[in-house]
């Protein structure tokens, strides 16, 4: 589970995230929706421990800055950055060592095959295309065997097969009790994945929906219903 309480983050005088709170239980997929600059990536970076912030972030009930919490969560950033002199396989090996991961060699190979990286595992970081880097980033996150996984705009740069695999993978993780948080502005990509959605506008969460409450209602409709109502001065949903 992922628990955010009163999270705020400022860059100088600019308040990027303003007292945001939300909760995603085990085995649920939360999606953070919102326009560019709403503060989605800042929240993800705060959870990943890359930014200073005020408020509390809990991973399986443990403060996110503690090493025990870090051992349980994986992070796929919006823009992947590889170590130039490390091969694809070595990136994964590093992650396994750093997290003391129980993931086996066979599982790694299966993962590489699934994302079409098996024949590219000896390629160096600086020889990879943006899409390939994103796939490596996803494989590294999976090699952690996480309890909570953060995905920041994960579909950008991926080919259709990889997008399909990623979607399947998210559903598989959910079914094994993993908490997933996806930040995106591509609504159609997460249509069939979400359980809870949080909509952001101007540094704040303006509302949330649970899938089991809204039934078969379209994600697009829900999103625009909420943002339009907020823009016209309506109450938070």
């Amino acid at each position: 589970m992922l628990e955010i309480q009163e999270l705020s983050k400022s860059y100088g005088k600019h308040l990027a995230v303003d007292k945001v709170s939300f909760f995603i239980p085990d085995g649920k997929v939360g999606i953070l929706l919102g326009p560019n600059g709403a503060g989605k990536s800042t929240i993800i970076k705060c959870i990943a421990g890359l930014l200073r912030y005020t408020g509390r972030i809990g991973i399986q009930g443990i403060g996110s800055k503690r090493l025990e919490a870090k051992r349980m969560f994986a992070y796929v950033p919006e823009i992947p950055s590889m170590f130039e002199a490390l091969t694809v396989r070595e990136h994964i090996e590093y992650v396994r060592k750093a997290y003391d991961s129980p993931v086996t060699d066979e599982q790694v190979e299966e993962m590489l095959k699934r994302f079409d990286l098996y024949d590219k595992q000896d390629k160096l970081g600086n020889e990879l295309s943006k899409g390939m880097m994103q796939k490596v980033s996803i494989c590294c996150a999976l090699a952690i065997n996480p309890k909570v996984i953060l995905l920041d705009e994960p579909m950008v740069g991926l080919d259709p097969k990889a997008i399909k695999e990623l979607k399947d993978m998210v559903l598989e993780l959910r079914n094994t009790g993993v908490t997933v948080l996806i930040s995106t502005h591509m609504l159609e990509m997460v249509e069939e994945l979400w359980d809870i959605m949080f909509v952001m506008e101007k540094s704040r969460i303006i509302g949330s929906y649970r899938k089991d409450e809204v039934g078969e209602k379209d994600l697009d409709d829900l999103f625009f219903e909420m943002t339009e109502s907020w823009e016209t001065g309506g109450e938070e949903v």
């Binding site: 421990g49 890359l50 997290y99």
Partner: peptide, 15 residues
């Protein structure tokens, strides 16, 4: 530090 540190090292469970 390299950008890859922010991706792979900083979020990892290392002191």
């Amino acid at each position: 530090f390299r950008p890859a540190h922010a991706h792979f090292v900083f979020p990892s469970p290392i002191s």
